[in-house]
Design a protein around this nucleic acid. Structure first.
Lengths: 164, 164
DNA sequence: CAGGATTGTTTACCGGGTAAACAATCATGT
DNA sequence: ACATGATTGTTTACCCGGTAAACAATCCTG
């Protein structure tokens, strides 16, 4: 058993082409590798649980969340809060307004800028999304104890806080 | 101090538009949020330290790593090891061959498929990249003790192992 | 006022990923 | 022996999220 050769003379053009597991080299020693895999996994889980029901993405939810927490926020402020280019915000705000979740209120004190706010439907939708997302995370992290979750978050936070 | 209003009548079209910090709502309670921020941070750090010197991306390095660890691997096998579509592999393998790091050796036992292997230059380049990446990770995680790094990796691994 | 900064927007672009089709080749059942 | 079906690499067209550069309108400040 193990290392079952697939070609006749056992050497394809060298060594590999087995039926056995593929090796990942030093990848398992690389933190970035585990971060990426975790993020891919949580994204898929999100798509299967949250997105199927609420038609939202992690990014859009984030935007909604900070708009909700900062009523009247301007797009440039939102952009820097999200650490993204101003031009990226435009599409997002368009999507969200087209779906009736937020609204662009012209600023009274600055005729260049808009104040973003949730619509009543936006508030309702956001509440539903929050429930769905909390359930999704609960499910995704069900292998971890409460303490483990908090230490995980704490470790991550220390990493990105110390690397601005 | 604090909550310095920027507009004359203190109410833009509601409440916000302060000079104060923007709130992130429940985002800090969401694991996915911290994961994403960490990954953005490590990616930037990678770009500034590794990519500047070696002209590589995390994705390309991963490919090189598993090709090196599985000499003679076929593209389809590589695709499933990387959990990515076969068609995505083509561009990557093209880039890597154009740069002289790997080579497509026609399989002897299956005229449809190629066996991927590193060139001598590929091996040298990979060794340099490994050094650069290990330094980069060392630097990025310098705020964590050795134990904390291993528990972090262990927690992440448990998450994506339990969520296939 | 003039000059410079800021705001939202458009356009063009890039990177990485998918989905669908395709020709060449293999594998298998009858 | 041969038809059928699966597999391999590839191309093409697409989508998504993001950047960079330019732009008109507006603000701010000397």
């Amino acid at each position: 058993m193990g290392a079952v050769m697939v070609s006749q003379q056992g050497a394809e053009a060298g060594i590999a082409t087995e039926e056995t597991e593929v090796s990942y080299g030093l990848l398992p020693k690389v933190l970035g590798y585990h971060l990426r895999r975790t993020q891919v996994a949580i994204f898929k889980h999100f798509a299967h649980s949250v997105a199927a029901a609420e038609d939202i993405t992690p990014g859009l939810f984030g935007m909604l969340q900070v708009i909700a927490a900062n009523p009247g926020l301007g797009q440039s402020r939102l952009a820097e809060a999200m650490e993204v280019d101003r031009s990226s915000i435009v599409k997002v705000v368009n999507q969200l307004t087209e779906r009736g979740l937020i609204v662009r209120v012209p600023s009274l004190s600055d005729r260049r800028s808009y104040c973003l706010r949730l619509t009543p439907e936006g508030r309702m939708a956001l509440r539903r999304m929050e429930q769905a997302i909390l359930r999704h995370e609960e499910e995704f992290t069900k292998a971890l104890s409460a303490e483990e979750k908090t230490t995980l978050v704490a470790l991550l936070k220390r990493l990105y806080d110390q690397n601005p």
